[in-house]
């Protein structure tokens, strides 16, 4: 790993962490647990496109761990990590097939997987009744995923490479 890559990763981690902590302090738009914009995912998508899978995963994992330390509760870590990992696997696979000109689609699929992972974690914690939330979460996943995906697409297009 060269120094330039390491520096970019550190910068991306700092940006992701800042965005994540700020978003955690803003009341979510809809008072349903699990619904949020997920602005930090813009950084994960950018890292995936600009750096690669291993680098993006490193940034994501460090952001989740440090994010829970700075802004989370003990429970939220479980939701973050299960949603985050499932979302990352989906996005890195989807990016191969869809390419960066359809990054917003990759983002929506990632958001859907993220909520799927959260529902799985919730089902373990509060019982299978949590599955009742899947439809409402999926609707918001499409909306928020499109938003963050378009943001990431515009960002990576401008950063070039």
């Amino acid at each position: 790993m060269n120094t330039k890559k390491l520096t970019i990763m550190a910068l991306l981690l700092a940006i992701a962490l800042t965005v994540f902590v700020i978003e955690a302090h803003v009341p979510p738009p809809v008072p349903i647990p699990g619904v949020k914009l997920g602005l930090a995912n813009i950084v994960t998508l950018a890292a995936l496109v600009l750096l690669g899978r291993k680098e993006a995963l490193t940034v994501l994992l460090l952001r989740i761990v440090l994010g829970s330390v700075f802004a989370g509760q003990a429970v939220s870590f479980l939701y973050s990590i299960s949603g985050g990992l499932l979302s990352f696997l989906t996005m890195s696979a989807a990016l191969r097939f869809l390419g960066r000109e359809r990054l917003w689609v990759v983002s929506v699929l990632g958001a859907i997987a993220h909520n799927g992972g959260q529902i799985l974690a919730a089902a373990l914690l509060i019982g299978p009744g949590a599955a009742a939330y899947l439809p409402i979460l999926l609707i918001f996943a499409v909306l928020t995923g499109t938003f963050t995906g378009l943001a990431a697409q515009l960002l990576t297009a401008r950063l070039g490479k």
Binding site: P27, P33, Q73, A122, A132
Partner: peptide
């Protein structure tokens, strides 16, 4: 923050 509901998506207190 959910307020009063008469149906639809249940109120959930995750913590």
């Amino acid at each position: 923050r959910r307020g009063y509901i008469s149906g639809g998506v249940p109120i959930i207190c995750l913590p």
